[in-house]
Structures are given as C-alpha cells and as structure tokens.
Amino acid sequence: MKGEVKLGILGGGQLGRMLMQAGLDFNLYTLVLDPDENAPCKDICHEFFVGSFRDFDTVYEFGKNCDILTIEIEHVNADALQKLEEEGVKVYPDATTVRTIQDKGLQKEFFQKHNIPTSEFRLLKDATELEANTDFLPAFQKLRREGYDGKGVVKLTGSNDLGKGFQEPSVLEKLVDYEKEISVIVARNPKGEVTAFPVVELSFHPEHNLVDSLFAPANVPYKLQRHAIEIASRVIEAFGMVGILAVEMFLTKDGQILVNEVAPRPHNSGHHTIKANFTSQYEQHLRAILNLPLGATDIQSAAVMLNLLGEPGYDGEAAYEGLQEALAVPGVYIHLYGKKYTRPARKMGHITVLGQTIEEAQQRAESVKNVIKVKA
C-alpha cells in the first residue's frame, strides 16, 4: 500500500463516519460525497462535497479524484461506478454487485440462480398483479428499489390488506415461520481471502421494522451457526465482491436457514464489533478494499447493541438526556453519530453493552435501554 491513499466514500452518514474513524489508523486521505450539507462526515473528512450520489456526472467527477471508491449506502449511480472502473479507479463493491443488490427482485433471482436458500417469492409489476396473487398471501411486499430501514416494506395477511400494497414494481415474499432473525457479516479481499464474523441475533422494533437491538454471540446451536457462516461465505463468493457484505437470514422453526437480504457495506448488525471483536467491521472493510490481510473476527466480549432512535414527538436540533446515568454502568459505551437534527425514529447513535457472558450484557442493556433519550 502506498503512503497515502485517496479513499472516496459515497454517502456521509454514520457508516461513513465510523469507517473514517477506523481509517485514521491507515493514514487514508478521505473524500466524501453527500447531498446533506450537515452530514455526519462533513467535519472529519479531508474533503467534503455536497451533491447527489445518485447523479451520474456528480459521482463520476467525484470518483475521478479517488484511488479507491467505496459506498456507505447502496442507492448510488451504478453507471458512474462502471465508467470509473473502466478508467482504472478501484471501485468496491463493483458496479455489477451494486446493481443487483439495489433491486430486491434481482437479489432474489441471484439467490435462486446460485442455489442460495431463500424464501419463496414472486415478482410483481403493479397493483393489478398484486390482486392476481392473493393466493400467495400471507407475504411481505417489498419495493424492488429504494427501500431501507423498514421503508418500502408492508405485511399483507390477506385480500383485505391489498389497499396497503404498493403500486410500483415489487417482490412478494412468502411469510416465513421463523424462530429468529440472524446476521453474518463476511469480508473478501482481492486475493480471494474470505473471513466471517460470528453469528449475531437480531431483534426488530415492532413499529418501525428496523433493528432495535442485537445479541452477540447468537443463542443458536453451533452446527447452525457454522451453516449460516457457510451460506454467507457462498453469497460473497458468488458475487465475487470485495469488501464487507452483511447477510441477513431467517432461522426457521424447522431448522432451515434462509437468506433474507444482503447489504454490500458496513451494516447495523456489525456495530458491536467496534468494542466486542478483535477487528471491527469497519477496519475489516478497509483491510479488504486495501487488499491487506483480513483481521481476526473472534469475539473478545459478549455484547448487546441498542439502536438510539429519535424520540417520538421531537423534531429539531438534537439534545441528549441520560448520558451520565448510562455511562455510569460498567461495560456501557455510547456512539453518537454527529447528526445535527433529530426526528422520530431517526438513527442518532447506538449503545454497545459488554459483559463476560451474554446474560450479563443483556442485564446491563436492560438497565440502560430506556435511560438515554434523544429530544429536540
């Protein structure tokens, strides 16, 4: 690796911020593109550009100044990524992978083509096709493009729910009778080296349909953990991608593991690794895209991660309550994302709670989970 590498990041949110924090140890020169002039990365990168990462010309002109270009959000202009690749910029993940993952229909077809276990699905063009597929309900309907953090997803239990359905192209996924939702984060470098982080167990917010908390290690039999890691490794190998890939899965009540969705970037289900593992997901992503040996992923401490969301009824400049009380609990670490403004359910930070056992970490997490409030 040469002395100072120019790393471009498309997206200036909390994932980019934590990636840059890890990047300080690698002497990286960081450039960030984001449409928000107050993005969390603004004041800690070397160069910050306000602009749309969805616009071809904006992404292309930004990427020409980078040695390596990566993403912290997948909703970027893949055509610009492809042109930059053709002109010699190292783009990780590559344009083909980004295109596939941007479209949940293409994702499902990719899993099917590569014999990756996943739930049954049907691809719909519009609301008329939804009406013609009521025999497939109950199911989740997901917009093929632009959905994230519970947006663009609706549960349809029967024909009475059709009014809640989407008009746009979508995926209808058969409802899975699952016992747990789990996640495995895998990494691959250009040499083809692959490593996986231990399986984590996810708990979702009942209202906002996004990760509320996670538990590491997952309370899953060892044989099933190995199977989940093997599936996640197969997915990243099938894509042939370089960098970090988060693979979210269902563990069904009859012991099957089905891939739900993937994200080709650092992910909410890996935040705890900053404190709990030998190598964080952010450092691992950098090691991968810099073509360095991948780090050890072993757990150093059991951990619970709690998302810190904006309180209901508050919209404005963020103010934090309860930090003193929470930080007085042993093993509690606060990660604030530098977002100037809060709104209900906006991700404003996360809390990592460590313990010698997962039970100890869970007890500590229970004592602090309602202590910190993000208000305006």
Score class of each variant (00 low, 15 high):
residue 80 A to N: 07
residue 291 N to P: 02
residue 243 G to L: 01
residue 260 N to W: 01
residue 318 A to F: 06
residue 125 K to L: 07
residue 299 I to E: 11
residue 172 L to T: 12
residue 41 C to G: 08
residue 143 L to H: 00
residue 78 A to R: 05
residue 217 P to Y: 03
residue 300 Q to F: 01
residue 95 A to D: 02
residue 253 K to F: 06
residue 225 Q to W: 11
residue 207 E to G: 11
residue 372 I to M: 07
residue 211 V to Q: 02
residue 77 N to M: 06
residue 31 L to E: 06
residue 102 Q to F: 01
residue 87 E to N: 12
residue 237 E to H: 10
residue 186 V to Y: 02
residue 27 N to D: 13
residue 227 H to F: 14
residue 329 V to I: 14
residue 370 N to E: 14
residue 207 E to D: 15
residue 48 F to T: 13
residue 198 P to G: 04
residue 194 V to H: 00
residue 344 P to S: 13
residue 309 L to Y: 14
residue 325 E to H: 07
residue 225 Q to Y: 12
residue 149 D to I: 06
residue 251 L to C: 01
residue 305 M to H: 09
residue 102 Q to W: 01
residue 259 V to R: 03
residue 57 D to F: 14
residue 24 L to C: 07
residue 311 E to Q: 08
residue 234 R to G: 08
residue 372 I to V: 08
residue 218 A to W: 09
residue 158 G to C: 15
residue 132 A to V: 11
residue 4 E to S: 10
residue 224 L to S: 11
residue 106 L to F: 15
residue 123 L to H: 13
residue 140 F to G: 00
residue 236 I to H: 00
residue 47 E to S: 12
residue 257 I to Q: 02
residue 220 V to Y: 10
residue 305 M to D: 12
residue 320 Y to C: 09
residue 142 K to C: 04
residue 7 L to S: 02
residue 360 E to I: 14
residue 153 V to N: 05
residue 261 E to I: 05
residue 48 F to I: 13
residue 163 G to Y: 03
residue 210 L to M: 14
residue 218 A to V: 15
residue 158 G to S: 15
residue 104 K to D: 04
residue 92 Y to I: 05
residue 17 R to T: 14
residue 351 I to Q: 03
residue 366 E to Y: 15
residue 131 E to R: 08
residue 20 M to C: 11
residue 356 Q to G: 09
residue 29 Y to S: 05
